[in-house]
Every structure is written in C-alpha cells, then in structure tokens.
Design a binder for these strands. Sequence first.
DNA 1: TGACATAATTGGAACGTTCCAAATATTAGG
DNA 2: CCTAATATTTGGAACGTTCCAATTATGTCA
Lengths: 341, 341
Amino acid sequence: MTKTRVTVIDIAKAAGVSKSTVSLVLQGSSLVNEGTRSKVNAVMRELGYVYNRGAANLRQAGAKSRIIGVVVNDLTNSFFAELAVGVDMVVQSAGFVQFLSNTGESIDRQREVVASMREHGISGLIVSPARATDAADFKPLVAAGIPVVVVVRNLPGAKVSSIVSDNQAGMMSAVQHLAGLGHRRIAFLGGFPDTAVFDDRLAGYRSGIEAAGLGYRGELVVSSAPSRAGGVEAIAKAIALADRPTAAVCFNDAVAFGVCDGLRARRLEPGADFAVVGFDDVIEAQAAVPALTTVSVDPQGIGRRGAQMLLKQINAGKAEAETVTTAVRLVVRESCGAARA
Amino acid sequence: MTKTRVTVIDIAKAAGVSKSTVSLVLQGSSLVNEGTRSKVNAVMRELGYVYNRGAANLRQAGAKSRIIGVVVNDLTNSFFAELAVGVDMVVQSAGFVQFLSNTGESIDRQREVVASMREHGISGLIVSPARATDAADFKPLVAAGIPVVVVVRNLPGAKVSSIVSDNQAGMMSAVQHLAGLGHRRIAFLGGFPDTAVFDDRLAGYRSGIEAAGLGYRGELVVSSAPSRAGGVEAIAKAIALADRPTAAVCFNDAVAFGVCDGLRARRLEPGADFAVVGFDDVIEAQAAVPALTTVSVDPQGIGRRGAQMLLKQINAGKAEAETVTTAVRLVVRESCGAARA
DNA sequence: TGACATAATTGGAACGTTCCAAATATTAGG
DNA sequence: CCTAATATTTGGAACGTTCCAATTATGTCA
C-alpha cells in the first residue's frame, strides 16, 4: 500500500524529537529520558516502523552485521541438519541470525555461496566444507578479518579454527568392540579416499586392527560413496572376497544402512549373520531395525560448540585459530550382534 | 590486515575512471566500453573488491535485496530439511540467497525470526508455520509488499499463497486401498485435532470410508501427538476397542512407525496381522521393516514449487494470493499386507 | 569542416542509519 | 541569582552504492 517506508525521520517528526534521539532509543542508550523513550517507542509501534539493518551497518562501517553464515555440504543428511540446528540455537540466543546454505558437495556452489554471504557482510562463517575444498579457499575471508570455523571435516593447511570429532579413536573403539565379540575378519566399508575424514577413520580402523592383534589387510578396505547406495555397493564387493569378512565398520551411518540393505538382499540378517557398525549416530540409527550400533558424535553439540567458538572470535575481534577434537563414544545396539552374545 | 575495505571509489581511482563507471560495470551495463570494462574488472580482482550489497539496496530503495527467507518448524525432521533443499535449488539458481531458520514449533521464535528477516530486507518469505500460528501474523509482511508463501501447513484465513499436498485425496486413496484388500474396520490414528492438516486428512479418511460403503464411526478416530510415541499410544487405544479394527491409516509416517512398535509389543505383526498405512513417505519409510506403505508427498518438490511461486510474485511485484495443492500418490509396500494378498 | 547523432563517461544527490561535537535543559551548590 | 556540573537533545557529516542529468568523446554525413 504505502509506497514509501517509515524511517527514523518520520518517527522523529511524529514524536517531536530529532532523528538522533530516535536512533539513541533504537540502541537502548541510557542517555535518553524515560518519557521521551516511551513516547518514541509508542510512535514506532503506531507507524509500524521497521528497522533497516542494511543502512545501520553501512554506517557502522564494520563487521557488525549480526549475520552468521552457515554452509553445509549435505543438508539432506540429518547429521548436518542437526548440526545446523545446534548452530542456530546459540547463534540466535546471541542475537545473531543464521544464513544457511547447502552446497550438495559442489565446490563451485560453495564458492558462490560464500561469495554471496560475504557480499551480505556476514560477521562470521561456519562451514562443513565440500569434498576437495582447497585450504586456500577461505584465505580471503580471514584476511578480511572474518572469523571462520570449519566443522566436521578439517582442512589441513588452512589457518582457521576447526572442530572435528575424534574419528580415529571412534573407529578404533568400534573395531576393538567387534574383535572382542570374536570377529577376526573385519572390513572397513565406504567413504571417499580423498578426504581427511576418511584418512582419520581408516587410521583408526588400522590401529584397532593392530591393537587386537589381527593383521591389517588392504583388500578388506572397500571405498565407495558415503551414502546408502554406496554401502550396498561396498558390501557386495566385500561379500565376494575369497576370505569373506564376518563384520564391518562403516564410514558413516548412511553406508551402514546400505550395508544392511545389501546383506538382506543376500538373505543375511544384519546383527545375526554379519555384524555392522556405523559412525555418526544419526537420528534414525536407534529406530532402525536392527537398531544400529554406531559411534555417536552429537552433531548438534558440534554445532553449538562451533557457534560458541565463532562468537568468541567475533567478540574478541581477533581470530586465534584453534583446533578442537570432540570426544565420541560407541553406542552398542543390535546391529553388531552383541545383544545375541 | 587492511583496516579499510575496498570501495568502488578505490577501484575508480586505480582504474582512472569515475565511480559511476565502475558502478555501471558492476551492473553489467551495455553502456560501458569493452576496454574500460575489462580494465575495471582487472583492477577489482587485483584489489580484492567485495561488493557491498547493503549499500546497494539501501540506494535502490526497494525490496531488491535478493534474500529469500525460509522458516521451517522442525529442521531435524528430514521432511523439512528436504523441503529447504528444494527451495535452495531454485532460489540459488535465480541468483538469490537463502536465509534459513528453524522455529522448532515455537511461535515466539517464529515471530523473532520473521522480524529479524524483515529487518534484513528479505524480498520474500517461504514458511512452514509453527503450530497454532495466527493467520494474521503475516499480515504486516504482505502489507509491506513482501510476498509470502506458506507451505505444507495452510493458514486458513490468511491472504497469502500456499502450497499444501493433497491431504484429502491422499488419505482417501489410502483408505480405499485398504478397503480393496478386504478391510471393513479401518481406524484413523494420530495427529492433533487443532491443525488444518488434521482436518484435511480426516476429511479424506471420511470420504474414503463412505466411498467404500463403510459407515463412518467416530470411535475409530484416535488422535495423539504426531510422533512415534503418539502412534504407540493411539494403537493401544484402538486395539482396546470392543469392535477392534483390522487396519489403520496414520496421520503421518512417524505415527505409523509407532503403531508398528505398539503392534509388535502385542505380538501382532504389522502387515500380516494388522495393516498400517502412513503419510509423507519420509526417507526411512522404504527401508523400515516391514517397508511402510504410505502416501508420498515429495517435500523437495514442494520446496521447489514454493520457491518458483515466490519468485514469480517477486518479479511480478504483486502478490496475487494463489493456492496450490500438489498431487500425492500412494506407495504400496509391505505394511499394508498387500504383498501377502 | 560544421552539424548532428551516438557512444561513453561523469559529478553530485540521494538512500536510512550512526557517530560526533556541540548545543541546550536541568539541577545543585554557593 | 550566578556558576558549574550533569542530563538530554541535536544538526550535520559520514558509510558505499545507484540514479539522474549533464558532459565529453567519437563517429557520420553532407
């Protein structure tokens, strides 16, 4: 209806004060008289005033936009959705708003999205980088004084803060648990070898194998897409091996679910005929049949923690890169066959 | 490093042209000479120029912010995550960015979030409203010329566009399918009666019952929380009826899973001893045991469609409220017992 | 070459806010 | 009633962009 928006000047005129006073009220300054304040507030309500943050942080000439950018590589994976929710919690209670985008593992998209966020003047960025992201990609951001926190996947070589779960310890405990149940041939299924997370988890697998006194054998490591479909594929290859494994640790829960599908297609019951352990503890893990034994990483916690770290850096005005690995724990349910034993 | 950011004026100076020319280049105007353009572009790259969208749309005095707000009521539910991904797809390829927030069904949070988005000058809003959202809540937005599209849950009485799935037809076909399998006593389980979606689905149930020549009987309708736990509760009540049902359509898939749990707890096998049909076709539906027969609604499609509708309204500059119901289809799997027959 | 069209460029003046220094009101102390 | 202190208010001048009207360069035609 009204073509022209209501500005501080309109408020000022209507309330019989100056625009500066209105601005003071907006900022909750203690300089302004109580009576004036309430009158101004009343007028604002009456005229339906909407604060123009764009204009404000144009003047404020700084990174005071109160926008936090969040970039995840796969929002359809509930792990990352949970992560985003965790970030949102602390970001919102700190009076910031979240700018969330999904890259779907596309590195071009990621670049676009980050550029766009920068144009909008985000005051910080939390990112779970797409595969094969170049460590130098976030250089310009930090050079411009915009704090960046990398979560879930770390970016070796990049001078940014990061929070990753303890992939190595988690995978190691999974392997040792299976070994403790008597399995001697334990496969490692799924995941793309060109990621740091894969390397970490594989290293944990290897340590677990060796700690259990089993020999590490390369043919038991079958990589694939880190998805349900990838899991189906991986288990097919593993089952075809001459020296067939009796158990598997999977790159993540999605792969584990795929492995279960693949087992059933071969009339093998996960848990009973073949032990399966996942990684992540996504929300579906406990409701699945059989309930998935998996390494729990609390994505929401990582999100919250990452957001706290970021806010700290924003407030400090200084980006001291720090790296945190969060503890994980094995959650034993049914798919490993422990219930039977 | 550099305390002061690079502006068009810096570029202008370095390139030996005026700021107006630089602005023209930024907008891709055809007025500017090819040579000048490339020189300006080169300088921009060299100095690491970052466009300041805030300043731009301050001047442009309009809703040209290229930000789309997306508000969902539960991001941890993969249904809504998928929806957001669908929105993001079309929004991004149209050169907009997405501002996503999660309300977690809190109506206060929803208000905050929407207010904040407005301050940031969103040019449109897509919202899956929290429960019990007041139809008048989005009035100020549309009054200010900001298009709003409501998805998934409709807001009767609000003059905004909306996209909802065809709840009525979906539920009706589910009932008819069960009737076709020979069931005469079909229950409707789960959901809160104070929502428009519930009313629609219940109406569909009723039509289905009547179309099949079965009498509608109120005691077969058992409401509960639309969750897994609610499903357990609802089936307990239904089983206790004197004239016990032999099949049930459920408010959504979560309820349906709970119903399966509840049946098993009574040594009844879903699919074989009691037919269960869900609604939504969440990602877990096909992997569950037994695979869930359900009404598929394609959240990503709704997201895409909603975004297209919104963009259309933004471009038209005029919000012609339209309501679309998207088709749904029954996906027959195992939990209805059809495989047996 | 002059006249005129066309192509390319350019200085302000906005946009809605915050900041600053300065002005004005109010109060207290003598 | 004057002075000094304190409490409140206030006009500009920014911020980085786009728009407009006006200017200057480049061609074209007779």
